[in-house]
């Protein structure tokens, strides 16, 4: 899990945060430390897409779709591991 835009979206899902809190939050839930440049690069892209500031309905929908996709991959992987 290293897509910075997804991590930023997930971090902002429960409300607005400033940069430092976002870095700490992401490190806590994903175990990834985003550099300041990478973090603001992702924020810029998401902002341009109109997905954040604060997280918009569109951003929320994109996050849900991305997470649902990941969820499908995780569930399939776990099921196949069990069945093998």
């Amino acid at each position: 899990m290293s897509d910075p835009t997804l991590l930023v979206l997930a971090s902002l899902a429960d409300g607005d945060k400033h940069g430092y809190s976002m870095m700490e939050d992401i490190e806590r839930f994903a175990g990834v430390r985003l550099g300041p440049g990478t973090l603001y690069g992702a924020i810029t892209r998401l902002d341009e897409l109109g997905w954040i500031r604060p997280i918009t309905a569109l951003g929320r929908r994109q996050l849900e779709e991305k997470l649902a996709g990941l969820d499908r991959v995780v569930k399939t992987g776990l099921r196949r591991l069990r069945d093998a």
């Binding site: 400033h18 940069g19 430092y20 870095m23 300041p36 603001y40």
Partner: peptide, 14 residues
């Protein structure tokens, strides 16, 4: 103009 102050603050924090 949009993110400069935020990035400055972050860099000073970390």
């Amino acid at each position: 103009a949009r993110y400069g102050r935020e990035l400055e603050a972050l860099l000073e924090d970390v």
